[in-house]
Write a protein that binds this DNA or RNA. Structure first.
Lengths: 142, 142
DNA sequence: ATTTATATGATGTATATACACTATACCAGA
DNA sequence: TCTGGTATAGTGTATATACATCATATAAAT
């Protein structure tokens, strides 16, 4: 079967990046499976741990997400009792904290995450730094 | 305000890649907005165009997606009448084609996509090739 | 020809993500 | 103190994505 040269015409950088991100996410997720959280959830736990009492807005900013996205991403963590909102009733601002169980899960997850991070670091090498340079300094908005 | 040094401890390669992919997707999506399709949809149109009569499985493979994911991603395109399944009733295998309207949309989308692709290429530079090298040759599965 | 295995696709349920919009607590100025 | 603006969060709806499972058409084996 001859290689279809036309294929290169639809080699889309955007799609390639998406697929790469999915592949890497899957790698991290499998590393974290023993403790029952996803990479996203790990990242949120780690963030809240460092921003005790934070509200959704600050957290969204730190996590690089829309606030509406963040609200939903927090749901599983609240439902599982890994985080808690200690704001008084009717308060407009949340005050998010890890629960005891959340701290426990984080403690167990950390070494698993670190191992995945190390392995990926070796494989990705300098590409990651370059990409992040790109990510941080080039504005893609209007 | 002093920089929080601890931040680097949660600089997650996986999350960084996800955010980068989102940012780039947003860039492409905005470029394609005038023709009313997303980057994913553009990519599927382009793929089906080159694989006339293909089934979901082959398409999923080409697109790098789970078959179940693909089925759902096709829904908007079917609904909008940009693609059509010409397989006989009860057939197990689909036969997907662009409709006239799908071809029209693709024709309009192509230059917009190409422009986005070019701009990103310039900005990403060699990083993209390195990443794809990584993507293609390193197995992240067990 | 009948049975069995498999290829192919579809569905249920779940996370991840955003935009546009809504609801309301809080603050500031008259 | 009232009033109106802004900050903060939440909802509705939509795409994107996967895993586990189900349904069935087709191919293979006997």
């Amino acid at each position: 079967m001859p290689t279809n040269k036309k294929l290169s015409e639809i080699s889309c950088v955007c799609i390639n990046l998406r697929r790469l991100a999915q592949k890497v996410t899957d790698f991290y997720d499998r590393a974290l499976r023993p403790v029952g959280i996803t990479t996203n959830q790990y990242f949120l736990l780690a963030s809240i741990r460092q921003m005790e009492g934070c509200g959704s807005g600050e957290l969204a900013q730190r996590a690089g997400l829309e606030k509406s996205t963040l609200v939903r991403t927090l749901q599983p963590l609240l439902r599982e009792g890994l985080i808690v909102d200690k704001s008084p009733p009717k308060a407009r601002k949340r005050q998010l904290y890890l629960t005891v169980s959340g701290k426990e899960v984080f403690r167990e997850a950390l070494p698993l995450w670190r191992r995945a991070q190390d392995e990926i670091g070796v494989k990705l090498g300098r590409s990651h730094d370059e990409l992040m340079e790109f990510f941080n300094h080039i504005s893609l908005r209007d």
